[in-house]
């Protein structure tokens, strides 16, 4: 079984981060929240693997590994 990758994995990390901010640029708080929610769902579907998703939820909740 594969594990959630929690080591640096994005080439051009600064570019990605800037693009993420740019996507939110000019949006109201409500529209930004909605965009984040859609983004989570899109990414979750791409990952697909239920075990990885559970690990990702725990990592995002800042829970330490068992």
């Amino acid at each position: 079984m594969s594990d959630l990758n929690l080591t640096p994995n994005i080439a051009g990390a600064d570019d990605f981060y800037a693009e993420l901010l740019a996507t939110h640029e000019g949006l109201s708080k409500a529209d930004s929240d909605a965009l984040n929610a859609r983004l989570v769902l899109v990414l979750a579907n791409h990952i697909g693997d239920r075990a990885i998703l559970s690990q990702a939820l725990a990592a995002a909740a800042l829970k330490s590994e068992e």
Binding site: D33, A34, A37, R38, V40, L41, V42, N45
Partner: peptide, 23 residues
Amino acid sequence: DMSRVLRDAVLDLSEVHEFARPL
């Protein structure tokens, strides 16, 4: 509030992307 945001996100995506429909 957040469960509504996520619910509405599923519905908005379902109109455009097939993947969201089972949700």
